[in-house]
């Protein structure tokens, strides 16, 4: 194939504002997540197993309004929705799946330099990666719960719409919290290894082992339950919906567990990526 050499052509568009670059980073994460077969499968199976069934049951059950109890309590026939182990397990799986490639990809390909030689700082890079993951997680943790909530409201027989709307708003908060809680740890592991598999399996196995260890020791002291990230999530749901912490759990230790999940992980990720900013 012999082609006429093409002359270089200019691009005459106008540059976007800097914050738009963060949007571009987020979109990158979102589109690569949804184009990964693995993540997409977890997502779809999760929607069916976690959200579809409780949604149908709650809508079918006679009710006068949407209550917190329907979402986080021991629901009908003794089974639960947001506080079920199935939901948490899918949150673990999904966040491990998305975060595993988030930074390890750039370590593996030495591609930090093509980000950081552009108008993009380490903070914008991290916010973009985090934000993209958060959007995908929200599509799993928040959106379907809101849809279920609205369906329940649509079929409610009582007149108390105000309190139903309040629960809906709390659901937005709870879903967002669930979406972000496990991202920092996954991002941290992803910034520590070039191997996507190590980061993904490592993240999931950490949650899984902590769950086992936490449950094992909780017989001696209930506060051990805080070692189980699933419980941290469930207690947070209960707090957000105004049901309060279980009385045998120390609030200080609960806050400590939250801090451990969010703060050191974020700092380590920041330090790791910062190292690659100029020294490339």
């Amino acid at each position: 194939m012999d082609m006429m050499p093409l002359e270089y052509r200019a691009w005459l568009g106008v540059r976007t504002r800097y914050l738009t670059r963060v949007r571009a980073m987020m979109d990158g994460v979102i589109s690569s997540s949804f184009s990964s077969k693995g993540i997409l499968s977890i997502f779809i199976i999760g929607i069916v197993l976690v959200h579809a069934f409780p949604g149908v049951v709650l809508v079918m059950t006679p009710h006068t309004r949407l209550t917190a109890w329907m979402l986080v309590g021991e629901g009908f026939f003794g089974w639960t929705y947001l506080t079920s182990g199935v939901f948490s397990t899918f949150i673990f799986l999904l966040s491990a799946g998305i975060t595993s490639n988030l930074i390890s990809q750039d370590l593996r390909n030495r591609s930090f330099v093509i980000y950081f030689s552009r108008p993009l700082g380490v903070t914008e890079y991290l916010i973009g990666k985090f934000g993209g993951t958060f959007v995908v997680m929200s599509a799993f943790c928040t959106l379907p719960v809101l849809v279920n909530g609205i369906m329940i409201m649509a079929t409610q027989t009582g007149p108390d719409y105000i309190s139903s709307v309040r629960i809906l708003l709390l659901t937005l908060v709870a879903g967002s919290f669930a979406s972000l809680l496990f991202i920092p740890y996954g991002m941290m592991l992803s910034s520590l290894t070039k191997r996507k598999a190590y980061a993904g399996i490592g993240t999931f196995m950490t949650y899984f082992s902590l769950t086992l260890v936490g449950e094992f020791f909780s017989a001696s002291d209930p506060n051990w339950k805080l070692l189980n990230p699933m419980n941290v999530l469930h207690y947070s749901f209960e707090l957000i919906y105004g049901l309060g912490l279980p009385t045998d759990i120390s609030p200080d230790l609960y806050v400590l567990a939250l801090i451990i999940l969010l703060v050191p992980t974020t700092i380590i990720t920041g330090i790791r990526v910062k190292r690659y900013e100029g020294a490339v």
Binding site: A24, D27, I114, R118, P119, L120
Partner: peptide
């Protein structure tokens, strides 16, 4: 993707 990070509108980046 990198065009967008360098400040191009999303609509411009693919043809560019």
């Amino acid at each position: 993707h990198f065009g967008r990070i360098s400040g191009m509108e999303k609509g411009d980046t693919v043809w560019r």
